[in-house]
């Protein structure tokens, strides 16, 4: 059984289709990235999964349950929306203690202190949350989301509004949680670099439909156009002339002393290197290129926007 299952999910608002036949699964312990432009239907999907909205058609399950109808199952799920869910007038510790009470946590004081230490807010435990920066509130929000040790946690833009240092802290925390607590993480993010770094699987949603759903490794490798970058010790232009007409080179470009070649077959990389060495060029570095998640994302979202 998967941690999250979505089958044939559709939903419309006021006659406008927001989700159309969306299907994907998230395995236990995975960090899943859910990507898409604004208005693509990401938050609607999360709301349906959490039982806050009803599906128009199709079926959703989280840990095998329908969260809309199952209060107990909701105790096994954590969530962080764009709003952190705190009262600004209460202290960090009191806000966490409130949720600890709602989730029926044994020994809440110890757990609250443990989490405040985890997110580096121990010295602000008694300060009102209203005095916190955006980043501090976000960290506290993550602490709240995992307070009850959920099996699945839904994070909606967890890094938004954070400085690079805090973004890294959040990223490391998500990876740590997934690894140490075997927590399944459903990450809705616009930070493609962040998603590429930490997610094992991604789905790209555009125009209410899933445009791509695969592991990050497969998506970034499966370009159909294997590419190689060769760094030379000088003579880039001559090397370009030497390789551009080779039969297995489908495209070539030169940037100073760097050659960027696309190959008909990834197995042709040693042949390219041998041809360059044979022609007397000195090679400093050879690197197989793969596409970034950003390129793949823009390709799918661009297709959709171009076709819309």
């Amino acid at each position: 059984m998967n941690a999250v299952e979505v089958r044939g999910l559709s939903r419309s608002f006021n006659g406008r289709d927001i989700l159309r036949d969306v299907s994907f699964t998230v395995g236990h312990g995975e960090i899943f990235g859910y990507l898409g432009p604004n208005g693509a239907g990401k938050t609607t999907t999360i709301r349906i999964l959490l039982g806050l909205l009803a599906p128009g058609s199709g079926e959703v399950r989280v840990l095998g349950s329908d969260l809309a109808a199952d209060d107990d199952a909701r105790a096994r799920v954590g969530v962080l929306f764009e709003n952190n869910g705190f009262s600004d007038r209460m202290s960090a510790a009191d806000n966490l203690a409130y949720y600890a009470g709602l989730y029926g946590i044994d020994d809440p004081a110890e757990r609250v202190d443990e989490l405040l230490a985890l997110v580096g807010l121990t010295d602000r435990r008694d300060d009102p949350v209203g005095t916190f920066s955006t980043g501090m509130k976000r960290k506290l929000g993550i602490a709240r989301a995992i307070l009850h040790r959920p099996e699945v946690v839904f994070l909606d833009e967890p890094s938004s509004g954070l400085d690079p240092g805090a973004q890294r802290m959040v990223r490391d925390l998500i990876v740590e949680l997934s690894r140490r607590e075997e927590m399944t993480v459903f990450l809705n993010s616009h930070h493609l670099d962040e998603v590429q770094r930490i997610c094992s699987t991604v789905a790209i949603l555009a125009g209410g439909r899933i445009r791509a759903f695969d592991s990050v490794a497969n998506l970034t490798a499966a370009s159909g156009r294997p590419a190689v970058t060769v760094a030379l010790a000088g003579a880039g232009d001559r090397a370009y002339e030497a390789v551009k007409s080779l039969p297995y080179v489908t495209g070539c470009d030169v940037d100073g002393d760097r050659l960027h070649c696309t190959l008909a077959d990834p197995a042709a990389t040693p042949d390219l290197v041998a041809a360059l060495v044979g022609a007397g060029f000195r090679i400093e570095e050879v690197r197989r290129s793969s596409r970034s998640l950003e390129e793949i994302y823009l390709e799918h979202v661009g297709q959709r926007e171009g076709g819309a």
Binding site: L52, D71, R74, V77, G85
Partner: peptide, 14 residues
């Protein structure tokens, strides 16, 4: 108004 009700609705409370 501030949206924090959404988080509360996800808690195991009817």
């Amino acid at each position: 108004r501030d949206g924090s009700i959404e988080t509360l609705l996800c808690a195991p409370v009817s």
